[in-house]
Design a protein around this nucleic acid. Structure first.
Length: 432
RNA sequence: GCGACCAUCGUAUAAUGGUUAUUACGCUGCUCUGUGGAAGCGGAUAUACGGGUUCAAUUCCCGUUGGUCGCCCCA
């Protein structure tokens, strides 16, 4: 290594190092995700980080692929992209084995995803995302279940119904309103839907002005449907829309499941063009973090892009960064605890005895670390304290003679004398 | 890809175009050879990187890198 150019100690731009404390938070979030998904009977899958670039081109369009992904040509001349999202991958996997898979298919995954862009709040170059999807069910029953999983995750994080809100809309209803109600052509309808997607980021006057530019004299008709609070208010304006019918089923299903904190939001669009039915977003209601936490929707045409028969799908993706922000905002972050139960200190000449004790405890499932230094006992105990290890014992002449150890609880500062077997049973119970 | 702001010990900060760059917490050693948290006394550690202006730059200017926040985009 040359002396004039120091190797950087910083993590690559837009990525995070997970030191044990951050890894602890990450593990917690993953474990909640996994627990809830599995409780609904979803099976975990994964795939490679690498996909052929073509996979994303087919779905996302040239611009996103060339400007927002990590793409390269491999040694064999293939165009390769590091996955920026999981949905195309899972659609590909389903398409490939569609003949042998059993439907309804319930799958989840927690992949890390990459996008090449400017890092900012809640958006890094690498993040992890829970993907939950159900394939092979066309009816609203699958939509209801997916939203129940989303709701269940929030509850499992300890959130109350007041902490968040589920906003729901349906692309078919939106399209009906744009095309039938407003009578817009394809390009105006698209423009307006993109504008509606942004409406909450703009001032109301600005938004209406921009809408009026697209709509002309139809602006009034638009305002009639934009600010309704319920489907009933839409009433006769959307009688033939299958989207409206689907939403009614979903709302009834959620009510039946005891879920109350959802609303019909006619302005909800979501960015993806591939959604074909229901779209929803879990929204943080706290003024300190007032934004979408995650969302998803129905995509019945995605598997079909592989040239095979259609397989309907609905699902959502939830990011780890926004999940952590939510926990932080609402004081739901769990207290850090290292995955070590016991720190074993030793007096001069008793390291071997300390190691023997550790081995005995480990065989019974105790996670024990031995101080390998020749520091003074006070320093060894301090090391355990700094690492927030809950218990400590010191091995010396006395202990070796009697076979009794003083198990010290560092948080309470209390010591209890006991045998190795007793230590095992105490620490085992702590873990449960 | 575009724009704005920012960069001083591990963290949080102070100061200055000119001797040893401040303070707190943390870290470390000792007081204290079988037990962390208290106290006292010591100690180590910083002007992101590269260039320019200047007798002199941590300070002013430019660039790079990184961070933060918007825009674009949004799995």
């Amino acid at each position: 290594m040359s002396a004039n150019k120091k190797l950087s100690i910083e993590a690559y731009k837009g990525t995070r190092d997970f030191y044990p404390k951050e890894q602890f938070v990450q593990n917690y979030i993953f474990s909640v995700w996994r627990k809830v998904a599995q409780s609904f009977g979803y099976l975990e899958y994964n795939a490679s980080l690498l996909e052929e670039t073509e996979l994303y081109r087919a779905k996302s369009g040239e611009e996103i692929v060339s400007e927002q992904t990590y793409s390269f040509t491999d040694r064999g001349g293939r165009d390769v992209t590091i996955r920026p999202e999981m949905t195309p991958t899972v659609a590909r996997m389903v398409a490939q084995k569609r003949k042998e898979l059993t439907f309804p298919l319930r799958w989840f995954s927690i992949p890390n995803l990459f996008r090449y862009e400017r890092p900012q709040k809640g958006r890094l170059r690498e993040h992890w995302q829970l993907n939950v999807d159900i394939f092979g069910v066309e009816s609203a029953q699958a939509d209801i279940e997916i939203i129940k999983v989303a709701h269940g995750i929030m509850k499992a994080f300890g959130a109350s119904d007041e902490d968040f809100e589920i906003r729901i809309n349906d692309r078919r209803l939106l399209n009906f309103l744009l095309h039938e109600h407003l009578g817009l052509d394809e390009s105006r309808a698209y423009k307006l839907s993109k504008l509606v997607d942004k409406m909450h980021k703009m001032k109301a006057e600005e938004f209406l002005k921009a809408a009026a530019e697209i709509l002309g004299h139809k602006a009034k008709l638009f305002e009639e449907v934009l600010y309704v609070k319920s489907l009933d208010e839409l009433g006769e304006k959307a009688p033939k829309s299958t989207g409206a019918h689907g939403l009614q089923q979903i709302f009834a299903g959620l009510k039946a499941a005891g879920i109350k904190n959802f609303v019909y939001d006619p302005s909800l669009v979501r960015g993806f063009d591939y959604y074909t039915g229901v779209v929803f977003e879990v929204f943080d209601t706290s003024p300190a973090n007032n934004r979408s936490i995650f969302g998803g929707g129905r995509y019945d045409d995605l598997v079909g892009i592989f040239g095979v028969e259609k397989v309907p799908g609905v699902g959502f993706g939830a990011g780890d960064v926004t999940a952590a922000d939510f926990l932080q905002t609402h004081g739901l972050m769990p207290e850090y605890r290292p995955d070590i139960d016991l720190y074993i200190c030793h007096l001069d000449g008793y390291l071997d005895n300390a190691n023997n004790l550790a081995d005995k405890l480990r065989k019974q499932g105790v996670r024990a670390a031995v101080d390998l230094t020749d520091k003074k006992v006070s320093q060894q105990v301090k090391t355990a304290d700094r690492e927030q290890i809950p218990f400590v014992v010191v091995v010396g002449e006395e202990e070796v003679k009697t076979g009794k150890f003083k198990l010290k609880n560092l948080k309470e500062g209390k010591e209890v004398e006991m045998s190795a077997d007793q230590i095992i049973s105490v620490l085992r119970n702590i873990n449960k």
